[in-house]
Nucleic acid binder design. Structure first.
Lengths: 113, 113
DNA sequence: CTCCTGTACCTAGAGACCCTAGGTACAGAC
DNA sequence: GTCTGTACCTAGGGTCTCTAGGTACAGGAG
């Protein structure tokens, strides 16, 4: 039952981690950008506060699913920590998508009727 | 942002509570039956252990979304606690369905492309 | 000059949730 | 006599999410 990273049997834990992986699957991004991009891509329906995203990024990095590196933008602007998927992360993303599809189908079967 | 019952802005917390509400929206059920029915209705993909379901039922009852009553089945069989939706529960279920739809759409937008 | 907003990072702590791993009790099957 | 099934329950650990802050610098408004 492929999970994002050591969650329970279902998807509910670490669900937001999967969304972050999905964004990073498109291109490298940094934390602050992820918050904004998540909001944009979901048309405002997913609005994770920084206090959720930064710890999530640390967990994902700790678990080896993403790798981060500092980038100096220069001229007094705060430096950014860019993240990209590792190969483990790519696998976790693929598995997570499968899990999400399965969970969605299952939940719809229960919720639908 | 109608939530199931005091969760955060999103759906991830108390998600399973919503599934339980959905089952109880069909008919009265008792805990042990809910575990089995959830598994059946989702074709095995949602398999909540009793240690998840019973506390969830207590929370839902505490929050006034469901009401429970004991039923004696007789002849030495263990008695059952049947639950049904309250009117608050019906509302929470309707809201929860809306939230689920929105979250699903938003997550697909992020995951899909 | 001061204040406010924006960028970009971070943490501590509270609260909630999920699961493991048990336990109780009785009945019927083998 | 033990095992499986029904039906309930809880304690405790681990995890996650969010609130509510904090740091630092830059640029614009007034």
């Amino acid at each position: 039952m492929s999970d994002v990273h050591e969650t329970g049997p279902q998807l509910s834990r670490g669900e937001f981690g999967l969304l972050i992986l999905a964004l990073l699957g498109r291109r490298e991004m940094y934390g602050y950008e992820i918050v904004a991009e998540l909001r944009r891509a979901s048309e405002g329906d997913i609005d994770l506060p920084e206090g959720t995203v930064y710890p999530a990024l640390r967990r994902l990095e700790r678990d080896g699913l993403i790798g981060g590196h500092w980038v100096d933008v220069g001229s007094g602007a705060p430096r950014r920590r860019y993240y990209r998927l590792t190969s483990d992360g790519e696998r976790a993303l693929a598995d997570g998508r499968t899990d999400w599809l399965r969970f969605k189908t299952a939940a719809d079967a229960v919720l639908g009727g």
